[in-house]
Amino acid sequence: MTTTTENRHALPTGYQLQDYRLISIIGHGGFGITYLAKDTKLNHEVAIKEYFPNDLAIRENDHNVHPKSHQDKENFAWGLERFLQEGQTLATFQHPNIVRVLRYFEAHNTAYIVMEYEQGQSLSSAIKNKGTATEAFLLEIVSPLLEGLQAVHEAGLLHRDIKPDNIYLRDKDHSPVLLDFGAARYAIGSRSRSVTTIVTPGYTPFEQYQTKGDQGPWTDIYALGAVLYRIISDKIPVEAPKRVNAIKLREEADPLPPATKIGRKHYSERLLRNIDWALEIAEKDRPQTVSQWAEALLPPPSPTEQAKPVKPVNRITPATTSAATTRCGSTTAT
């Protein structure tokens, strides 16, 4: 993972935050700042995510974070509570494809989530200028992500912001990790009715644009389907509201070309058909659970794999670490 430029709202480099000395900024957005830090007691590097919704909060000279107004105070506290709940829940996971949370704590009138840090790059970086990705590459990525996502859903959570920037590929074995769950961001956006703060155009399904949209596992499935579509087409999918407007308001064809059409020269019909299934506009028309989609999407296991004991939770084949996996590019979001 590469470091990013400095952020004027961030804590200074070298700052001692409890047991951690901040080394650099490795990510920042509208709702938080992520630091690379060194655990000074255990002598290893960690990533620390700070809750900092910059539309609602400011940092004073004493490094404490304060809401900008009384109205912001309510929304800030609402999001902070959900940020801590997210940290608490993620800390219970011991899954190789979900970001590992080591601890969480409150300080400076805000909160922090301490995560395991590993060398790697975002999927966004890996696919940039990569050329045509192989089907083997796609399956190596999606199979373990489905396992991780199913664990999340079984815990009663949704990710709500799956996109190439939030999927991390480890350098050591190219295995994927889901990052940056959107609980706090979604809580604030829903409360303030600011839809633009809680969606990622192209990856967000239509129900997330609605205040009372029916969200469930199918919401994350749409987003992961959009990630696969991005890889096979080299284009970000058409935004969900534009698709709805074209079909329902103007009675035109869906402006999103089907995966079965654009990828037929390079990918199996099975893969393409199931990408299209995940990208259905209506929630009821998509796979309703990860296991349902996985059973249709992934090739059946070989006789050797069938002979091995499997977990009853799903029928997802573990990821391989083939040397054919290609990695390249920068850390720019796509």
Rank of each mutant, 00 (worst) to 15 (best):
A282T: 07
T332E: 13
L158D: 05
E251T: 10
H66A: 10
Q150E: 14
I198Y: 01
T34I: 15
T304M: 13
I247W: 01
E239V: 11
P144W: 05
Q119D: 12
P217Y: 03
S124M: 01
L228N: 00
R250E: 13
S233D: 07
Y209I: 01
E207P: 09
T332D: 14
K68T: 11
T4A: 08
P241C: 09
V227P: 01
D39K: 01
K163H: 10
T89P: 03
H159W: 08
I26G: 06
P144K: 04
K172G: 08
L149Q: 00
G148F: 03
A259E: 01
R100M: 13
A111E: 08
Y267A: 04
T197F: 11
M1V: 10
E140H: 10
P53E: 08
F137E: 14
A183G: 08
R315I: 01
A133C: 12
H159V: 09
A77P: 11
N54C: 14
W293M: 02
D276G: 04
V290S: 02
E154R: 09
R327L: 15
L22Y: 01
I232C: 04
I58N: 13
L224N: 04
L178I: 12
T92V: 08
A126H: 00
Y104S: 12
D276W: 00
T332H: 09
Y51V: 00
A133G: 10
S268T: 15
G329R: 04
P217L: 07
Q85D: 15
R243D: 07
N97P: 06
R170W: 05
V114F: 02
Q71H: 05
D55F: 15
T4I: 14
D19E: 14
S69R: 13
T197I: 11
D72A: 15
A136D: 14
I113T: 03
G79K: 09
G148P: 03
Q18C: 02
N7C: 13
E116R: 08
L149A: 03
F181Q: 05
E74L: 13
W277M: 02
S268A: 13
R273T: 14
I33H: 01
Q150F: 06
N314S: 04
Y15F: 14
V238A: 06
H9I: 12
I198P: 04
G225A: 06
K212W: 15
R264V: 14
H66M: 13
L279E: 00
L17S: 06
Q306M: 11
E74P: 00
S143N: 14
T196F: 14
A10K: 04
R82H: 15
T5P: 03
V101P: 02
F93A: 03
H66G: 02
S69C: 14
E116P: 05
T197L: 14
R250V: 08
E86F: 06
V101I: 13
S190N: 15
E269W: 04
R8V: 11
S322W: 11
L249Q: 10
A333Q: 12
G225K: 02
S302R: 09
S302V: 08
N97H: 14
E283C: 09
L102R: 09
S143Q: 14
Y267W: 07
L271Y: 00
A226F: 05
H28R: 07
N129D: 12
A226V: 11
E81W: 07
G156Q: 03
Y203V: 15
